[in-house]
Design a protein around this nucleic acid. Sequence first.
DNA 1: GCTGTATTTGATCGATCATTCAAGTTATAA
DNA 2: TTATAACTTGAATGATCGATCAAATACAGC
Lengths: 203, 203
Amino acid sequence: MPRIAKYDREKALDDAVRLFWERGYGGASMKQIEQALDMRPGSLYATFGSKDGLFREALAVYAGRMSHSMAEALEASPTIMAGIFAYLRSLTEQITAPDSPARACLVVKTLLEVTADQPELRTLVNQRLQDVEDHLAELFEQARVQGELKPGVDSHRFARLVQAQIMGLRSLAQRDIDTDSIKNLTEDIITALGAFTQHPTTH
Amino acid sequence: MPRIAKYDREKALDDAVRLFWERGYGGASMKQIEQALDMRPGSLYATFGSKDGLFREALAVYAGRMSHSMAEALEASPTIMAGIFAYLRSLTEQITAPDSPARACLVVKTLLEVTADQPELRTLVNQRLQDVEDHLAELFEQARVQGELKPGVDSHRFARLVQAQIMGLRSLAQRDIDTDSIKNLTEDIITALGAFTQHPTTH
DNA sequence: GCTGTATTTGATCGATCATTCAAGTTATAA
DNA sequence: TTATAACTTGAATGATCGATCAAATACAGC
């Protein structure tokens, strides 16, 4: 059994995430992928099957990191809503970092890029976003029971509102805009969401 | 002086808006443009110069319609904030219409699609979004003076919040999601923005 | 109807797209 | 050391990209 894989799969996927995040699925050519991953076509196709296959794996890595980042913020916070707000602030730090490939979310970029003739990719992206909604909804259901949310707040509906806030924050941050404005926006979003929270426990 | 222009420029641009809105700039090939506009390459290039030129004109038409739609809502409303909320509801109706090419905003789709090697397009899109921010900021400055906004609200900062809300609403609406959820989201966004408004005058 | 010119057509351009694969290289097992 | 299998290389594939242009077409003025 000879020849160990020269290229580190994790390293390659990390480079792929960076490239796809920066340029989008259609905007990243195989030639650019070859350069970014320092792999030749044969190795790429042997390892990932296709550009589509590579993108799927890169998207999974990206989504895993995002959800890990949210989990961290939640663990470090006393309440769920405090954790959500901490996550928004941490996310703002991440995307305003000078080496961030983009500020907008890769999943949302793909959602807005994908067309009807890529049904599998479309389904995949929708599933990722549904998963996030479901995860948020579970959290908010707990928060509701614990009295962190105003009476009558629907957890799934609130989850979609929060998801829309994140999409809006990160899309607006994709504009040529200064960091302070983005941080102010994050604070304003937290304030706006305050319309749905019970106040003693949050902020 | 023979030969009158066979193809109606407005009709052609309308078709171009539909196609670009649905498929994005990179996702629309010249072949598809030829089909959608029922024009052959020579005519297309004689009329619009390039794919880029056609897109710029289509984007201007699109942006003009959006700003017209907002102006309509404002005219029909007693206060500025009521007009903004009416616009959000009208926008929701528009994008959930069965024949809408997409729910997400063409300008935002382009913002998330465009890369560093398209600096003119990037600048163009950023300028459009800055124009919207400036227009909203003027409106909110009026609203502030008229007591529609809570004391201390910064008009430009609030304008960016509202722009982010629209981006978030329309991006989330791009998911495979039912119309009722989108309408609920719109109402929740209006509720959330209530954190910045003086209440007797709005809703 | 004829002439002249603006417009349209459609073949064609070189470049780039994602992908394939035969040949070469390298490391392990015997 | 040799054999073998896994991996890498890079040229080549056909398709499609945006764009060009000579030839055909259609309309206004006479």
